[in-house]
Design a protein around this nucleic acid. Sequence first.
DNA 1: CTGTTAGCGCCTTCAT
DNA 2: ATGAAGGCGCTAACAG
Lengths: 326, 326
Amino acid sequence: MAGVSIATVSRVLNERPEVSPETRARVLEVVSEQGFSARWSARALSNGSTGLIAMTIPVVHAEYFANILSGVAEALHERDMQIVLFSTQHVPERELRLVDRLRTGTVDGAIIMLPSERSPQLLRLLRSGQPLVVVDDREPIDPLIPVVSASHATGAREATEHLLSLGHRRIAAITGPRRWIANKERLAGYHAALAAAQVPRDRTLEIESDFQRDGGYLAAQQLLRLRERPTAIFAFNDNLAVGVMRAAAELGLSVPGDLSVVGFDDSDQCTVVAPHLTTVRQPLVEMGRMAASLLLRQLHNHSSEALRVELATKLVVRASTGPPAR
Amino acid sequence: MAGVSIATVSRVLNERPEVSPETRARVLEVVSEQGFSARWSARALSNGSTGLIAMTIPVVHAEYFANILSGVAEALHERDMQIVLFSTQHVPERELRLVDRLRTGTVDGAIIMLPSERSPQLLRLLRSGQPLVVVDDREPIDPLIPVVSASHATGAREATEHLLSLGHRRIAAITGPRRWIANKERLAGYHAALAAAQVPRDRTLEIESDFQRDGGYLAAQQLLRLRERPTAIFAFNDNLAVGVMRAAAELGLSVPGDLSVVGFDDSDQCTVVAPHLTTVRQPLVEMGRMAASLLLRQLHNHSSEALRVELATKLVVRASTGPPAR
DNA sequence: CTGTTAGCGCCTTCAT
DNA sequence: ATGAAGGCGCTAACAG
């Protein structure tokens, strides 16, 4: 319609320099008049890339997922790329489908959140040259795979130091599942702070739980019934902390008067509970951005640099912490 | 490698009946040995469909989004289809990108959540034969477009009836933005229940707010300072209700002793506040499922039946409501 | 039942 | 600066 060949139109659409301005103008005019746009699958077939990235949906809290997601989406948007969602509910059969989509070129790469296990799937994927990035490895993962996570240890350390600086000495910890990496690091940070302040570690003040509110509630009941009860509880996530506050309320203990409480995550619920919860903020959106950018680099360099990025957490002091009662 | 033609392999992979069992077996063996899988973009190019559908990410609450999302994902999974995310932050320029992706065949159809406006974009899309479904229209939308939403009116009516049956007569309402459809319907339900109980409508007990916690807080302060203050407040979403409870606490009013509170949504925060919030549950996951299934029908029938599906809400009675003090 | 052939719509050398 | 031609990997119609 513009009196030129298909090849020329292609060049115009791809903004190649080797087209005369007049031709370009003529083509663009017709294109916009006709509302033409290049069929995407043909493009993908021809140049071997789809501009799509896979992302798995973990079963955990919606808020966590949505925040990381939005970071990834933002970063990809700048490159005109999009996310394809894979609801592999940690079901192996479903994970296979993701693997398949990668291999068949539905997507150019994948961001895998909270991978369930040492998953041999992942390794095989990476070995076969698939670009992928893991966000928050739950258990030790092959060092070949790039990982983005938060600085759990430092965050936990700061939280504990905050309590110490307020004068607390009996600081209990309600932890998540022992095996999770994030949990181990938080525990390490907690211990480090105590050691630095020369507060001896007390095993009876450490309770393993499940990152759920009820778990925090039960653990807190146990802690608060101790003969010498803690003056502060560091719950390893906000859910646990909310459970702690519920238990405290039932026992007639005021927060932070009788008990200081610190959480981890800085989720929405922190400002729902009364008093508002002091916590450690995880930079979820930034983690998403970072994951996307690592993936994009793999895509362009065709080399997967094995690295592990830890983004800084930040202590957010609210109203649930204060000096211990005397 | 299996000694057959490409066409035959294609037939085997597509499970066509016209292949002899022996050939099929031979092909499948080689396929699995070699780890072969059909390139997806070629497939898409050839048969004109990508198996991908677009979903917009609204700016609102993560939880809302994640729930609907998971409903859609589940429904699509059964058809081996996936979601492509479009983070059009109600920015027109970004919405154009979605439009473009639809036209270029990146995706087969789209599910649009909380469309910002009477958006002429949407209409143009539908007119051009694009399969799409809207979830939760915010303002009146062209009747040509299929919509999935919750039965706001019925839900609000039940909530109000619940309060009436407890003996409340002065029941205030803190509403969302006047223009939103969901809000209008909730208001209608509220009025209907009052009328049925022959409780005259009192304008001073209706305050328009913004669906945010702070808005609920401010509105509640205003209501609770009235000379004749309400014995119950129906907040038109959970955020508002949480704000109400905060205001009540500050004024030394006990819930539900001095004041009953009802929310709407059944979001996570309902069980974070003390006491747990009575609310109206929106069937978000089911709405997602329904949207997906409407879209799939459009995809198969090539006809867009204009319809509007309202999924039932459900009153969830928790601890924030009780009989009024005398 | 299987192989051959012709596209699907774009991008990319290679000529001109 | 432009056009012609081949190919990306698959499906479908047509022979045999």
